[in-house]
Design a protein around this nucleic acid. Structure first.
Lengths: 252, 252
DNA sequence: CGACAATTTGATCTGTCTCAACTATGGTGG
DNA sequence: CCACCATAGTTGAGACAGATCAAATTGTCG
């Protein structure tokens, strides 16, 4: 039914990295009926306040959750890349209080919620993996509150780079030490709570300090240690494993 | 087994307000074996990076999720009051990337995760209610990212007041238009990303504009309309109901 | 080549921070 | 009962990170 590189590969990679999930259960997920759709960059996938009957999976490209502020400006609350499920919440809540938009040309698959629920009922560990996925999304939000709330400009931008790089790496779409951050500096500003102009100066500073090297929207990590120290970044929360009591052993 | 005002009342009120849940299922939750414990204000309930085998329910008082920044300062990522489940994540992930501390003298109940899981397996709609609770927690985090990232000082403080008031109201611990926000101004700063000094001036401004009146840590809402407008606050995300397709009808 | 978007640079302005002092307020022990 | 102390709130002055505005430059794509 699926070709050699089925559409949900990235999702399965993500689930694999956070949970023990059998081949059979992965097959059940991969066999879910999909409605694939391409969005051009800037295009809205769904509106803030909308009610979704489908859960969407990003297959390729980058999307973001965002909300409009009273003064008309936009806040980008999270970034989403291949394998992400930006509205998994729709399993449990009606209206979504954020909009979802494509930042780049984006391939997205839609899964009817009731079909997903059926699979989750039948496959306990797939179900558990999805819940863990949601919990990690939630952990990312909490981290971002701390980063955006209390960090300086350079820390915030460094943080965004660290997190996005690590996530891209996890789904295999980052190079050895370079990756795509396909946002304009103005968009990076919307995601970090800074003005576009200041993002520009901040990234210059990161380059001047030889932590990164940028070529367009491709960024090479020159000094990961320094970058993560600057960001106050610890990847621990990204690849949380199942609840075990030897968690200490896994600590980096 | 329970007295006239069983410990989990506030939790049941919360679940009731977000989901349809039968008396039988509520009884199953209320019958969960609890380990109750009192924490004095400032006391840590669990440490950042710890692994929890119990989920805790706030019974009374106020607690907060927090994390330490590299420079030693603290960021408060969320506030928790009666009926909240600040570490429901522990159902799915090992290490928690935040600490939990009592802001006031706090009564907290601990539920062994495996026991909670048993109840969830047996009672589908209780289980669904808890998941919706987690989804709303997640929605609050997203909102806070937008508020802390892009809002001015007065908007952030107003937002915190709006949200805390509405939540307190929902569990019946707020007066008609007054409620307890038991944080020092310095703590409000940690929660909003402002300095304590500036929180002071900001709250003076809110009082000067006659939106609130403060008596110690009790705050009266004088002009709710103005306050929520200032905050850019819309309570929609707090009492999200089950997924229905008539969601529009419920829109405020 | 021309047009449009994104990046870069410079200059100025402002919201918020920091530091420091002073004033409640409430609790504690003598 | 009061002197003392610690903690929270308040006020002022000055400094600074980052915003805003405006213009120049670079890059990209038809």
């Amino acid at each position: 039914m699926q070709g050699p590189n089925p559409p949900l590969t990235a999702l399965l990679i993500q689930l694999d990295s956070i949970a023990d999930i059998s081949v059979r259960e992965k097959a059940a997920i991969a066999a879910l009926p999909l409605r694939a759709q391409v969005f051009v960059d800037g295009q809205q996938i769904f509106r803030e306040g909308s009610s979704q009957s489908e859960v969407c999976v990003v297959l390729a490209g980058m999307a973001c959750r965002h909300t409009m502020l009273s003064d008309g400006r936009r806040s980008i609350m999270s970034l989403h890349m291949a394998g992400d499920l930006p509205n998994l919440q729709s399993l449990h809540v009606g209206r979504l209080d954020f909009g979802l938009s494509a930042l780049t040309r984006c391939r997205v698959a839609f899964i009817i919620i009731s079909k997903l629920r059926d699979v989750m009922l039948l496959h306990a560990s797939a179900s558990e993996a999805l819940r863990r996925h949601a919990a990690i999304d939630s952990a990312m939000s909490l981290r971002r509150i701390a980063s955006v709330g209390r960090h300086t400009a350079i820390e915030r931008v460094a943080y965004l780079i660290c997190e996005t790089f690590k996530r891209a790496e996890a789904v295999g779409i980052a190079g050895l030490s370079a990756f795509e951050l396909p946002l304009t500096q103005a968009q990076i500003g919307e995601a970090t709570g800074l003005s576009g102009v200041h993002v520009n100066r901040t990234m210059q500073e990161l380059r001047r300090r030889r932590m990164i090297h940028s070529d367009g929207m491709t960024h090479a990590i020159l000094d990961w240690g320094m970058l993560k120290q600057t960001a106050g970044f610890d990847s621990g929360y990204l690849n949380l494993r199942p609840h075990e009591h030897d968690a200490a052993a896994r600590r980096m």
